[in-house]
Amino acid sequence: MARQIGEVILDLKNISLRFGGVKALTDISFNVREHEIRAIIGPNGAGKSSMLNVINGVYHPQEGEIIFRGEHRKDMDTHDAAKGGFARTFQNIALFKGMSVLDNLMTGRNLKMKCNFLQHALWWGSAQKEELEHRKKVEEVIDFLEIEHIRKTPVGRLPYGLQKRVELGRALAAEPSMLLLDEPMAGMNVEEKQDMCRFILDVNDQFGTTIVLIEHDMGVVMDISDRVVVLDYGKKIGDGEPDEVKNNPEVIAAYLGTQH
């Protein structure tokens, strides 16, 4: 395999997060290594999405520490995270509904675009040139995800499965080094799931992107992830390679057990 799993680049230490009286996360620690695919699993309401939101600064934990590329911080800030190479998708699709697929993807690259609004208004050389350059990059993503035919369609009109794919596209357009995916295959049929798996693996393989992934389909998780962390009621109950986790009695009781 071309891909080589590297050092720990993201280290979460003793993270606790509360909403009023609700303890969403309690004293959770785990880490992510460069280039790996790290899965977070657990029953509904376990705190998986909250964990992802803590990682890129949408939620701010009350306790704990986040170490990203050697930098210690109390919590993350969304903007810093985006600049630091994070991109993500959301459990309930968070596309820009009124915009076309192309515009959604172009927006994904906004941090890389430098012209200001006056240059845009006048559509001077640099603004136009920049737009074209980035359009080329976005077209690469469009090719990669095989969505050429819906380039100009407003995303609100697309079927669910395609919207999920476009959302992945928007994240990829940013050329992230760290990709956070919240249930990217939920609600998809088998074929769509296979496509999505292929895209995730290809991204990881071709660009070396580190991926943190929340997924319910155990088959998929065991197949594609390098390491798995298991949450239940906001607590961590398992962490390790897929086989290890699969045989962890606590996990079987709490999570796999409840599946049947």
């Binding site: 890129n56 949408v58 969304t78 903007h79 995270a81 985006a82 600049k83 994070f86 991109a87 993500r88 959301f90 968070a94 596309l95 820009f96 509904k97 009124g98 915009m99 515009d103 172009m106 927006t107 994904g108 906004n110 941090l111 675009m113 012209c115 609004f117 845009h120 208004a121 006048l122 559509w123 603004a127 737009e131 928007r170 940013a174």
Partner: peptide, 30 residues
């Protein structure tokens, strides 16, 4: 001028904030 603004990054950022502000922020839009 307005047409130029709305078809470029400026306009896309506006629409992104309009359509889904959290996602816009996560993408790095201030």
């Amino acid at each position: 001028l307005a047409k130029n603004m709305v078809r470029s990054t400026t306009g896309r950022s506006w629409m992104a904030v309009r359509d889904m502000d959290v996602a816009a922020e996560v993408i790095g839009i201030r």
